[in-house]
Design a protein around this nucleic acid. Structure first.
Lengths: 327, 327
DNA sequence: TTGTATGCGTTATCAC
DNA sequence: GTGATAACGCATACAA
């Protein structure tokens, strides 16, 4: 089988009887001429696709999208949430011929260096920040300006793509309150994580507005932490009648813990999470939660940084209540 | 802030007082000389990292790893299993400066063209096949030779990286049989998927060897299909005392279905899955299953194709029984 | 608007 | 072994 290499811009130019430069411009769109049509025709006929590697080298734009996850330890990359983000980005980037790499952004004083390194890496065309904090945003080097977005909080020059955390929390909490719950406990995420602020705020607001007791236990995004938190809640506030967890995994941990403690859900205690992961529908009882379009968010973030154009400062994705039996 | 671009090979060569060519060779390792040491020192001191884009263009090696998932529809990419594979690959490829793209490999007659296109894409340095079939392997173009691996079945020239499906199935089934189950039903995967063959074979073997009835229902890898399959099993073979599903998601679907039908697990029916996904530990009852090191497998696959060296024809990853309450 | 010429950073092919 | 030098494929500043 004759392995003919893919056609180059040179071939297209020759076929269209123009120079490489003209062909390049025609394909780039900045040439509104009759020649433009010829070039496009030739390109289509030859099955030409621009070589992203050569393009990146010539334009200095890089050819890979770095998904960078902030956290205390490297195992933040083990989170299924991160998997979804990375996979969605890898899918969105594929048509443009760019790949995605995933790496950990440490929380120690080495953070700025890692970011700087990323900015100087000629292979990187853009960065998607995950679990961003104010400190990370402040440490962002100038070399990254204009090609970094954040899934989470943003900053001037760093467009934010995120679910409406606060709105989702309010919706869920209102639902619990409306169904008669009056002693609602909350399992929050790590305090350093900005995305936990809004839900906690929404919780405190509702508790304050209704004169209900504030019962916050901190956890992380693991089921195990939910398990532990449930035990703590039962111990400290035995009359709790609802638990709202920052995320589905801990909520499912709560369900498991309560189940094995003989507590009836939702009879004795209502439980709700956030994310609507696939298995939220499979627990017993089914987990009431709110949707979190992770794939759509990551896709939008990837497309924005790939487009190169400045994106709106903040793109907020709606979340809707998913009512099941647990609350 | 002065945006100094990262040092180039030229800079290193100058600092080490050699030519670019020598510097290149020294870094590549094919120069065992005193100059070699100087070059390395200079590189380290300048913080030089080779530009993967330029390297790819010059050597024609490409700069992105394509994860290609075979299946009937594009939504095979929505599977959490695929997310894990892509994310693990993206993590393994990051240190080498290469990114990962994810795309769907259709099952219609367009398959060979997509593969050929992939082989001619100058940006692609390697391919990881997921859900490979014999037909896909047969359609592999020569242009891909030596830089493609498979997570699943392999072929001459296409190293396979996979969990020991057959062994895992045997372990689980033996466990069920040993605990007294005699009318075991199995929920298999799509018939076209080679990775379902071994488990089904193991199942049939055990049933034959023990003179037990064969009860196979086909499903896919979704929880929903497990739900449906459970209903079918109850209807067709009401005396079934165990259900073994090809994967955890359908197994959890079975658990949910049996739970809502008032069937006691494991009292009336034992249930087991395969994969040990995080939520297998959280179901009620906890799901007995077997481990599936997806991350390690994908990492090994990515590293193999990135290394460029021919890998062993088949790398099999062990699986171990995870005993919980459901079986 | 179009063509010419040069640069991007590296590897590979030569002579030496 | 080492050093010039030519690719690699594309974008772009500049001149026409």
């Amino acid at each position: 089988m004759p392995h003919r290499p893919s056609p180059t811009l040179e071939d297209v130019a020759r076929a269209a009887d123009v120079s490489r430069a003209t062909a390049s411009r025609a394909l780039a769109g900045s040439a509104s001429t009759p020649a433009r049509a010829r070039v496009h025709a030739a390109a289509r006929q030859l099955g030409y696709t621009t070589n992203p590697v050569a393009r990146a080298l010539a334009s200095g734009s890089g050819v890979r999208l770095a998904v960078v996850v902030h956290g205390r330890r490297a195992d933040v990359l083990d989170d299924p949430y991160v998997d979804r983000v990375v996979a969605a980005a890898a899918r969105a980037a594929a048509p443009q011929g760019v790949g995605v790499s995933a790496s950990w952004l440490p929380m120690d004083r080495g953070t700025p260096q890692v970011l700087e390194q990323l900015g100087e890496d000629r292979g990187v065309c853009g960065v998607i920040l995950v679990n961003t904090t104010e400190r990370v945003l402040a440490a962002l080097p100038a070399s990254l300006r204009g090609r970094v977005v954040s899934i989470g909080i943003g900053a001037p020059g760093v467009p934010s793509f995120d679910v409406d955390n606060g709105g989702a929390a309010t919706t869920i909490l209102n639902h619990m309150y409306a169904s008669g719950r009056r002693r609602i406990a909350m399992i929050s995420g790590p305090a350093w994580l900005p995305c936990t602020a809004r839900p906690v705020e929404a919780y405190r607001d509702l508790m304050a507005a209704t004169g209900s007791p504030v019962r916050v236990v901190s956890g992380d995004f693991s089921a195990h932490s939910g398990h532990r938190a449930a035990a703590e809640i039962l111990r400290r506030w035995p009359d709790t009648d609802a638990v709202y967890a920052i995320s589905d995994a801990p909520a499912l941990g709560v369900l498991a813990a309560l189940g094995s403690s003989g507590v009836d859900v939702p009879g004795d205690i209502a439980v709700a999470g956030f994310d609507d992961i696939p298995f939220a529908a499979l627990s017993t009882p089914g987990l009431t939660t709110a949707s979190h379009p992770v794939g759509r968010i990551a896709t939008a973030a990837a497309e924005a940084v790939l487009a190169g154009r400045p994106a709106p400062p903040v793109t907020s994705f709606g979340s809707e209540l998913i009512r099941r039996r647990s609350a």
